[in-house]
Computed example of a mutant assay.
Amino acid sequence: MKDPAEKFLTAAERQHIEARVAEAEKRTSGEIVVMVVPSSYHYPLASMLGSLLTAMIITIAVTFLYEQFIGKESMWFFPALFSMVFIFVHEVIRRVPLLKRIFVTRSDMREEVEEAAIQTFYYRDLNQTVDHTGILIYISLFEHHVRVIADKGINDRVNKDAWQEIVTTIVGGIHAKTQAAAIATAVDRCADILSTHFPLQAGDRNELSDEVIIGAGK
């Protein structure tokens, strides 16, 4: 099965976004990185909880019907059926994101995206630019969340609330199924914000790749 993050943007759409990043960085000494992950976490507890609840409901119902219509009681019927249903449902929930999301709270998803975005920022060395002007646009598909992480040099001059506009633009584009255009627009807007405080300097070099990163998440 193809990775959802791979399907999210076509090769042509990635190239278009990468070109916009390159153009944006001609106006600012800031470095913009776009990353798309299928999920920020695998949420094992959600699969376990969903499987337990579903298996319990199905097993109780089937056991009741079995005893009503067959008229037999067996101490082994319930645990045997429960085990089989649990294993089957667990695999289904684990593999079907829409089902798994039912058993994950919004607060848990928000926390996992926040943690994963910050980890990615440092793992990808976005904090290593000369003037600490790296910025990460992190898109996590399972959680339907977008997070913008800016380095210290940017945060010292730009209010963090400014990035909400970027998030809103991308989320709106995803809902409208125009995610590539929305991300390109968001990149342009990042450049507008950064160029005010960090205009392109003589001798500036491209410190981070313009490539759209398709990641595996945690």
Rank of each mutant, 00 (worst) to 15 (best):
K2W: 01
A5W: 00
A5M: 01
F8C: 11
E13S: 07
H16D: 08
I17V: 07
E18Y: 09
R20I: 03
V21W: 10
V21H: 10
V21S: 11
A22E: 06
E23P: 05
E25S: 02
K26F: 00
R27K: 14
T28Y: 07
S29Q: 11
S29L: 07
E31C: 03
I32N: 12
V33H: 03
M35H: 01
V36S: 03
S39G: 08
S39K: 09
Y41N: 13
H42V: 03
Y43N: 05
P44S: 03
L49V: 14
G50N: 05
T54F: 14
I57A: 15
I60M: 12
I60H: 09
V62C: 06
T63P: 03
T63C: 14
F64T: 04
Q68V: 05
I70D: 00
I70T: 13
I70E: 03
E73G: 15
S74L: 12
M75I: 14
F77L: 11
A80R: 05
F82G: 01
S83C: 14
V85I: 15
I87A: 14
I87S: 12
F88W: 09
H90N: 15
R94E: 01
R95H: 02
V96G: 12
L98E: 13
L99F: 02
K100V: 05
T105M: 12
R106H: 14
R110S: 13
V113C: 08
V113G: 11
V113N: 05
E114C: 12
E114T: 13
E115V: 09
E115A: 12
A116T: 06
I118R: 07
Q119I: 00
Q119F: 02
T120C: 10
F121A: 05
Y122T: 08
Y122A: 07
Y123N: 06
R124W: 02
L126C: 11
N127W: 03
N127T: 04
T129P: 12
V130W: 00
T133Q: 06
G134N: 01
G134P: 06
G134H: 00
I135G: 00
I137K: 04
I139D: 01
I139W: 02
H144D: 07
H145A: 06
V146Q: 02
D151C: 13
D151R: 06
K152S: 04
I154A: 04
N155V: 11
D156Y: 06
R157A: 12
V158E: 03
N159K: 15
T169H: 00
T169F: 00
T169Y: 02
G172M: 01
G172A: 10
G173T: 08
I174A: 11
H175K: 15
K177F: 00
Q179G: 13
A180M: 05
A181W: 00
A182K: 02
A184S: 14
A184D: 12
C190R: 00
D192H: 10
I193M: 07
I193C: 03
L194D: 04
T196H: 13
F198L: 15
Q201R: 15
D204A: 15
R205F: 01
R205E: 09
S209T: 11
D210N: 15
V212H: 12
I213T: 08
G215C: 09
K218D: 07
